[in-house]
Simulated assay, not measured.
Amino acid sequence: MSLQKPVMRGLLARRLRFHLPIAIAIGLTSAVSFKYMVTEPRKRAYAEYYKHYDVNKEFNAMREAGVFESVQPTGK
């Protein structure tokens, strides 16, 4: 009694025929879910932040804190 030899011819093609569509579906699902669960809320948060952001107020606060060496704080 001997064991049957494994069929090696076309093994990769058969495995890919089964696994490739699954891998593509998982990849697309991951990409779409990442886009709508991570990047879209992040873009909305940045838009909301910069809607009320005052550049001059931020610059004056950093100047008063002494962040810039070339700009002297007012009042000194």
Rank of each mutant, 00 (worst) to 15 (best):
M1E: 08
M1P: 01
M1G: 10
S2R: 08
S2W: 02
S2K: 08
S2N: 09
L3N: 11
L3H: 06
Q4M: 07
P6S: 04
P6A: 10
V7F: 04
M8W: 02
M8L: 14
R9V: 04
R9K: 13
G10R: 03
L11M: 10
L12K: 07
A13P: 00
A13K: 13
A13L: 10
R14I: 01
R14M: 07
R14E: 13
R14N: 06
R15F: 11
R15N: 01
L16K: 15
R17E: 13
R17S: 15
F18L: 11
F18R: 15
H19M: 05
H19G: 06
H19C: 09
L20P: 01
L20V: 12
L20E: 06
L20H: 02
P21E: 03
P21K: 02
P21D: 02
P21I: 04
A23R: 13
A23S: 10
A23L: 13
I24Q: 09
I24L: 15
A25Q: 03
A25S: 12
A25C: 04
I26F: 06
I26E: 08
I26M: 13
I26C: 09
G27W: 03
G27A: 10
G27Q: 01
G27M: 06
G27S: 08
L28K: 07
L28R: 02
T29K: 03
S30K: 05
S30L: 15
S30F: 14
S30A: 15
A31I: 11
A31Q: 02
V32Q: 06
S33T: 15
S33F: 12
S33H: 05
S33I: 14
S33N: 08
F34N: 01
F34K: 04
K35R: 10
K35V: 03
M37F: 09
M37L: 15
M37A: 14
V38W: 12
T39N: 11
T39V: 09
E40T: 12
E40G: 02
P41V: 03
P41E: 05
R42Y: 14
K43V: 06
R44E: 13
R44I: 02
R44L: 14
A45Y: 06
A45Q: 09
A45G: 03
Y46K: 13
Y46H: 12
Y46V: 12
A47I: 01
A47H: 04
A47N: 11
E48N: 15
E48C: 03
Y49T: 12
Y49R: 14
Y50W: 10
Y50A: 02
K51R: 14
K51I: 00
H52D: 13
H52V: 07
Y53N: 05
Y53A: 07
Y53H: 12
Y53R: 04
Y53S: 01
Y53T: 00
V55R: 10
V55T: 07
N56K: 11
K57E: 15
K57F: 05
E58S: 14
F59P: 00
N60K: 13
N60M: 12
N60D: 14
N60V: 00
A61Y: 02
E64F: 02
E64C: 02
A65H: 02
G66H: 04
G66R: 04
G66Y: 04
V67G: 00
F68C: 01
F68Y: 15
E69G: 09
E69P: 01
S70E: 11
V71D: 08
V71T: 05
V71M: 14
V71I: 15
V71W: 09
V71C: 08
V71G: 00
V71H: 05
Q72I: 04
P73V: 00
P73G: 00
G75L: 06
G75I: 03
K76C: 02
